[in-house]
Amino acid sequence: MSQIQVEHLVKEYKRKKNPEGLIASAKSMFRPEIETMQAVDNVNFAIEKGEAVGYVGPNGSGKSTTIKMLCGILKPTTGSVRVNGLDPFHDRMKNNKNIGVVFGNRSVLWWDVPVIESFRLFQTLYEIPEKRFKENLEKFTEIMDIAPLLSVPERQLSLGQKMRCNIAAAFLHDPQIVYLDEPTIGLDTESKASIRRCISKINEEEKTTFIITSHDFQDIESLCRRIILINHGKIVLDDNMQSVKQKFNQKKQIQFEMEQNPWHNGEEFICQGVRVMGTTSHSLKLEYDLEQTDSMKIMTAVAKGSEIQDVNISGRDIEEIIRDIIRKDNHIKRSSDVM
């Protein structure tokens, strides 16, 4: 059995409609109109120990709701979640000992006391042996570069400093699974990079399972080998990062810089599966379909007619691919809604 098993998971929210206008608002105080929305709609997936999964989707697609159900703080409307064989909602306390959570917009630390006091309290609450605690504290203090922050109360820290302390806090008890919900919000590039390095290392060395939601696709790309895409509460894509790139990256662009462009103001450059995107007297920009041709063929063809000085090949990055998939999915949904 997988470490995390999600089957037919559904979460419905009932929401009071907030009508417009004063009279309608007053009416709704007594007889509110309730609307039901499916935040998560029949979601299925399984995650093995040691995987690093990127859970992505646009705003309001049901990412955080899913994560909250995985942690056990929201009760699923129907369907089941099993984490290490436990139901995280009913065995929350047991489950809590095995997981670490970082919410980008919430802190787990005590607001008014120095950070180290919060860490010490975690040691007691999670029953971490002194030796292990010291090792972990030292390790994560160094990785997150928070040594000078330990004696400062949390309320005096900046957003990024708070995040770094929170990330360190999530790892102190050697969790088996770590949920990171927008972990790099408010961090500078240097901290982002060191967090990514650190997570990759823990993932490899300790076989810790990671589930990461982020709007920063660099986070997802550098950390996750698998990506699950959710839109309108439904899973649209669940695949290996590499194969997503290959499958959806069929078109690439290639740009040549040359002495003299013989195809500018002359006959058109013709090659199977290639479309000319732009020409100047010194450059040529082409888009080609990977199923019909490849970059070597094109280069050979171009080299025959001119002297190439520079070449630049670019494909779409994962962010663009995801955006495309979502756009298509929204389109399908809308047209099916009409019918």
Partner: peptide, 13 residues
């Protein structure tokens, strides 16, 4: 404020 989520994730009730 929604901080209850964090409190529910502590290893104590």
């Amino acid at each position: 404020e929604g901080k209850i989520g964090v409190e529910l994730l502590r290893p104590i009730s």
